[in-house]
Amino acid sequence: MKKLGVYIHVPFCKKKCNYCDFYSVKWDDEWETKYTEAVIHEIKSYKEMLGHKYIVDTVYFGGGTPTIIKPSNLKRILDSISLVADIDKDAEISMEANPNTLTDENLKQYRETGINRLSIGIQSLNDEILKKIGRIHNSKEALEAIDRAKKHGFENINADAMFNIPVQTTSDIEDTLTRIIERGVKHISFYSLKLEKGTPLYSMEQKNLITMPDEDEERNMYYKGRIVMEKNNLFQYEISNFAVEGFSCRHNLKYWNQEEYIGIGPSAHSFMNSIRYSNPSDLNLYCKNSIENNFNRIIQEEMNDKELMFEYIMLRLRLTEGLDAKEFKKKFNVDFNEKYSEQIKYLTDNKLIEYNESIVKLTQRGMDISNYVFEEFME
């Protein structure tokens, strides 16, 4: 049986963060009910395509704030997946969470529902920084959320941490990461803040109300954070992700391994049969269409072999284990060494990649300018 990932976008927030450009709307109970019914309808619409030919080995509730909706509705959504595909008994079932939504009662119900991995959006343990970026929790609530989750049996916990924030220092980053690690998290997603057009922080920078760290400072923050994590046995397995051995995020690895997944909910993206497609970013339209069994999915890209090869190279090089030229040949029936001999020579001569036996990896310098490296493989 082929393995499949399922991503479910929960588009509700109490308050949108100042840096966020993901699709989300303000939660209310009526919209939660409509949304839940629409999601179940959409999942059932895949019955013929999947036809129990797939086994679901990862489910990921992202957002938005998935923990804002009732645990009973999360259970109904999970139960509906088993109507269209088999679910692996060892499936990784992840859910993103804001610290102040993780109550004892909710955590108990999440465990009973089958959720076994939490991704907690901590970002920083400096309260001034949290206010600046518009988070609705404070540092005390963040640490308490980790403790509470562990008390209820969650061992597989990710913490999101952010760097490159105005007024942030390397000491802030080292302090945040050290205190998170001391709480026993097994995975950290370590992201650089990017200002997206249309967000409050973008507008503030345009008006010179905030100043972003310069490029050298941004890189220094990244290096300092990486050192703290690797000293504490959280090893880098992807450009922005670090984990204790055995705790890499299996769902996100699907993206980097170019494996198939379906996206459920407004704005969710899918990759099936070499086609990338998405749902409209409009909750009202999504609910209306879904209940009417009118799934107006937007085809983003029908990928040919050349496009699939480039994307595969780009995704695999994000991983510290790199790209295996033997696996590349199996997948595409193309000899990697012959096809990219000039690129390999140029990038190795400039110490941007390492090539040992059949494994191609980015060097640390290559990671810093990874987009430049990827562009070398474009045709």
Rank of each mutant, 00 (worst) to 15 (best):
A161D: 05
N106W: 02
Q123S: 01
S139L: 07
A145L: 08
L125H: 03
P166K: 08
R117D: 01
I93A: 07
D104Y: 12
L177K: 07
D86K: 14
I115A: 02
V167D: 15
M95S: 10
Q109M: 13
Q123D: 09
K131M: 11
E155V: 12
M95P: 02
N156G: 02
V84Q: 06
I115W: 01
S171Y: 12
S171F: 09
D86L: 11
R111P: 08
E105D: 15
A161T: 15
H152G: 10
T113D: 13
A97V: 00
T176S: 13
K132T: 14
I165A: 01
E174I: 14
E96M: 06
R117G: 11
A149Y: 08
G134R: 07
N106R: 13
I87W: 03
R117K: 12
L102R: 02
N138R: 10
G121Q: 00
I120R: 01
A149C: 12
A91E: 04
Q123V: 07
E112F: 07
R135M: 03
N156P: 13
S171W: 05
L177M: 08
I165D: 11
I146N: 02
H152M: 11
F154N: 03
N98Y: 06
L83F: 13
S119F: 05
E105R: 12
S119M: 08
S94I: 02
N116V: 09
E96Q: 08
N138S: 10
E96W: 01
Q123R: 07
R111W: 01
I122E: 00
E112K: 15
N126R: 05
T101G: 00
R117Y: 09
Y110G: 01
I115L: 09
I157N: 01
A85C: 09
L83K: 14
N158E: 04
A85P: 00
I122H: 01
A91H: 03
L102M: 13
R135T: 00
I81R: 04
V84M: 07
D175Y: 14
T176H: 04
S94Q: 07
K108C: 07
M95C: 14
I133G: 03
Q168Y: 01
V84Y: 12
K131A: 11
K150D: 03
D147C: 07
